[in-house]
Amino acid sequence: MNKELAKISYLLAQGFSYPGQNNCNKTFFEAVKEVANAFEVPCGSISFSKDELCQAYTQLFINEPQGRWAPPFSSVYLSAQGLLMDKGREQAVKFYKEAGLEPGRLTEPEDFLVTELHFVAELLDSDNLGLLSRFLQQHMLKWFPCFYRRLKALKPHPYYLLLADLTSRFLDTTYQEVIDETT
């Protein structure tokens, strides 16, 4: 089962990456839809044009003129200053190090939602469930719900709302699963 969960985590990470060839095609949307079905999250048609998603993504996660956006970085939510590269990033890096890993390529800070979802997948893939449960409990489940709330309040594009719904379910489910398995 962990391998499947890992795959879902990779899928969600890809969903939260900027729209491009890999995550803006029929196969990808199909997979998202199947995962939504598995989580019993209702979703209608989810075929969107790349331009539409690019604009929605930029507004929600990069820069938006109304200041109505949800930065996908843990740091913004985990310290009172609301800055990038703060405690959230420090925490994330510490967990990565404990797993003997470091993010190599990304230009985003290490606590980027996409990177953290990749890390969850890596831990699931390598059956490192003890560390995973701590990572979720002490870090990711501390900030993701804040991000999720902020995003929902923005009445975002339905596709990103769906991805956020799925991620929320996925993280809760995975946490319960690893708690059960490790206790």
Binding site: K7, N22, T27, E30, K97, P103, T115, E122
Partner: peptide, 16 residues
């Protein structure tokens, strides 16, 4: 559906 996916960014992490 998951198996058919090209998960292009799988190699974000590397050993420390």
């Amino acid at each position: 559906a998951l198996a058919a996916l090209q998960l292009g960014d799988k190699d974000i992490f590397r050993p420390v």
